[in-house]
Write a protein that binds this DNA or RNA. Structure first.
Lengths: 227, 227
DNA sequence: TTCTGTGAATACCTTCACAGCG
DNA sequence: CGCTGTGAAGGTATTCACAGAA
């Protein structure tokens, strides 16, 4: 284990391993191997070993990795043991949907507040009981709730300004859903999910393989049912 | 221009360039350069030129690129000129939010149908008027609407099965929002957006820089307002 | 023997730097 | 001259392959 910069490719895979180990844990499997993890995650076993070895020597040669122990290590490395409180800026369709999504809680992320600018939304609650605050109050609410992360679900023209407000409120990790490339100040991490880019990238694939919106479809071949 | 495999990194950037060119077009700019595009997109100008050169010689040495012309070429390459009809499987919070998001239309993607399994949802409509169909009818609806793309917004335990149904219905491009790693059959492209992975990757950043959910926050420094 | 941990090899992606053309 | 198009260089990520420990 040497001091080395960990790439985002690696951290994203750690998250995949964590989920895989949770699954094995639920199945009462006590020991696993890089090969088993690799098969379950469609990755290369050397990749798995290398990713894990950045953080310590968790395995036993000739045996493999202890599931429970490795799971706890990964949860610690990813910083999800204590959980995170998350705010969502923008209480439109997407913001509300994110606020009502119960999958976050399972992974230790709790949505504690929504924010909007429109008076008719402020003071309301999501169906899961999360309050919508005035964006003006963001600094106070972040302090009170001890939120550490934010999701941005605002229109493109508001994104940069909202991002500044969020950073000034003390948030250091942001998941941005607006179609704007935001520059992160020092010490702040911004990850963007741009649906248009994803869709257009898929569209390129269809074009490059000869499928067009107006083309009549060939009879689809039967595909093996999901296991 | 040689025959070469185009990476997904490149196709995603093409989508960024397209948006950049639309902006320039709106500003009545007639000619641009790799340097100008690079500055607006925070990329390297050689990268821009190389990406474009995979598909042809669109520029004029000593001058640059004609905005309108290049824009149309990129739209053609990405296959978004005729637009795509999109279905959404899963009419829960996320599926509905996606179905009501008006940003897709602007980029040429039209949501033509939602699908669910629950009888109480089938026959209803999204606020934007998109009908919710029975998942059983997916093949017929895909054929009738000539849909070419699908978004999956179903729970993890349904993801694999739903994916098979979608592929068997003739869809060849899928944007998957479920936290499951789906294997794409030959000729089918699946892109996944996994919110847990994104959040945990952000969580790692906070951990690695010493921020924890319970840590009291230092007074945030003022950040420059957005331009 | 089995399976980890890891240097070496490979593949891929980005940036440099410049020839060449308008 | 200015800017494209592109080979070469540099950097990063992945995979191979094997020494070494249980």
């Amino acid at each position: 284990m040497k001091i080395e910069k960990i790439s985002e490719f690696t951290t994203e895979r750690l998250s995949v391993y964590l989920r895989c180990l949770d699954e094995l844990n639920d199945m009462r499997v006590e020991t696993t191997s890089s090969k088993m993890i690799a098969e379950k995650t469609h990755l290369n076993s050397a990749q798995v070993r290398k990713d894990l070895a950045y953080f310590g020597r968790f395995g036993v040669r000739g045996v493999g990795y202890p599931v429970q122990d490795l799971r706890d290590h990964l949860a610690g490395i990813l910083g999800v043991k204590k959980g995170h409180r998350v705010i969502i800026v923008g209480a439109g369709h997407l913001g509300m949907a994110l606020g009502e999504y119960r999958g976050f809680q399972k992974n230790g992320f709790t949505v504690v507040a929504l924010f909007d600018r429109l008076p008719e939304k402020i003071g309301t609650f999501s169906r899961t009981g999360v309050p919508v605050h005035d964006i003006e109050d963001i600094a106070a609410v972040v302090q009170r709730t001890e939120a550490t992360m934010a999701m941005l679900a605002v229109p493109a023209d508001a994104a940069r300004q909202v991002c500044s407000l969020v950073v000034n409120a003390g948030i250091r990790a942001i998941l941005n859903f607006s179609p704007v490339r935001l520059a992160a100040p020092r010490g702040v991490k911004i990850k963007s999910i741009d649906l248009s880019i994803s869709l257009e990238s898929l569209s390129y694939f269809l074009s490059s393989t000869g499928v067009h919106a107006t083309a009549s479809q060939s009879a689809p071949q039967e595909v093996l049912a999901a296991r």
